[in-house]
């Protein structure tokens, strides 16, 4: 049975192996250089005491491969469910070969169990390896991520650590389940994709924020959390980044500027400035800036007055906790679907 499963699977396995080997090669070739560049640049900028510009430049330089690699890890589980899970049994049903194989001296349950184990474990091992390799590779990038690409933010989190493995295992079993229930390949593929993508959207939006109580904090203003400002005759307005300066990987859930009285200001809302503030927050010409923070004086004055970023967020240190909980949720779903598959195949009318 293992031989048959492997014989039917080896073509797709070779294809996946080749793709993963290619991705792995690229990661291994570029990773160390990138890490060296990161630590060198970081020690340079730390000497100046201002690293925002370095982070931005570094991330910008590698944004393309960062997005590419992240996308590969995001899409792979869906592809596995779509192309491997859904057709695994419907192909047999459509070609009538289930009548051949289900009449050998092997029970259907055993047949399904071997298929599930051999292919499922291969899939999970491969995606686990890929997930961890990408996590290793992108570590410098995740540390300097621009807002929106923070490590804990939904899209990036989904493509790091061990959750890709959980997604892939789930997508594979989901494909088999829909295939068994529907019995035809194309509808099963469509339903698999629909359910999987729906879940991939629903969990980060509705469930994941509640894995842990988020941290609420009032954070001092700096280049790390202020994206830009506009001067106005009446004072100035600030536009905040969805980022915590001390924790670049944090997942920011809510984000506001509060004035010294504790009132939340709308994005870009203009507030009056003191004469000192007005002076400090006048933009400097590049020649006056040098290597330091061009807005340092302004932020110092605003912080002195009591303006703060009021944010709730999940910190980067919760990364593995969240990975564990998410993996657990998907593992439970996978086990439930597996049980459904076995129950169904026993009573199925072919």
């Amino acid at each position: 049975m293992i031989w048959l499963t492997w014989r039917q699977f080896r073509g797709s396995a070779a294809l996946m192996g080749a793709v993963l080997a290619l991705v792995g090669l690229v990661l291994v070739l570029t990773g160390p250089g990138m890490a060296a560049e990161y630590s060198k640049g970081l020690s340079n900028c730390l000497a100046n005491g201002f690293c925002d510009r370095f982070y931005n430049d570094f991330f910008d330089r590698y944004q393309q491969p960062f997005l590419g690699v992240t996308l590969v890890v995001l899409v792979l589980p869906a592809l596995i469910g779509f192309f491997w899970g859904a057709p695994l049994i419907t192909r047999e049903l459509e070609n009538g070969t289930h009548l051949l194989v289900w009449n050998q001296s092997v029970t259907r349950s055993r047949w399904l169990a071997v298929k599930l184990l051999v292919i499922g474990l291969t899939v999970m091992a491969a995606t686990c390896l890929l997930g961890l390799a990408v996590t290793w590779w992108s570590d410098p990038l995740d540390k300097s991520a621009a807002d929106g690409w923070a490590l804990m933010s939904p899209l990036v989190f989904d493509a790091r650590g061990i959750v890709p493995m959980a997604y892939a295992g789930f997508a594979f079993v989901l494909g088999i389940t829909t295939g068994l229930l529907i019995g035809r390949t194309l509808p099963a593929m469509a339903v698999t994709l629909l359910i999987f993508v729906g879940l991939q959207l629903a969990v980060p939006m509705l469930v994941r924020p509640h894995f842990q109580a988020p941290i609420s904090a009032n954070v001092a203003l700096s280049g790390g959390n202020v994206e830009g400002f506009n001067r106005d005759p009446g004072g100035m307005g600030l536009k905040l980044r969805d980022q915590i300066p001390t924790d670049a990987g944090a997942w920011v859930l809510t984000n506001h500027l509060v004035n010294p009285q504790g009132r939340k200001l709308a994005d870009g809302e203009v507030f009056p400035l003191t004469p000192e503030g007005d002076k400090a927050c006048t933009p400097l010409s590049p020649s006056q800036v040098g290597q330091g923070d061009p807005m340092g004086a302004c932020f110092a004055e605003l912080n002195r007055l009591g303006y703060r970023q009021a944010a709730t967020y999940h910190p980067t240190r919760s990364f593995w906790l969240f990975q564990g909980i998410e993996t657990g949720i998907y593992a439970a779903l996978t086990i439930a679907l597996t049980w459904l598959c076995f129950w169904w195949i026993r009573r199925r009318s072919s």
């Binding site: 048959l4 039917q8 009538g96 070969t97 009449n103 050998q104």
Partner: peptide
């Protein structure tokens, strides 16, 4: 019980030899 289904299905991707191997592996 042996069963030869209607339209005598076979795995189109497997060779004759591999079908025999399938039978040998799956039947004591």
């Amino acid at each position: 019980v042996g069963f030869v289904a209607q339209d005598t299905p076979a795995y189109s991707g497997l060779s004759v030899e591999e079908h025999l191997r399938l039978g040998a592996r799956l039947n004591p």
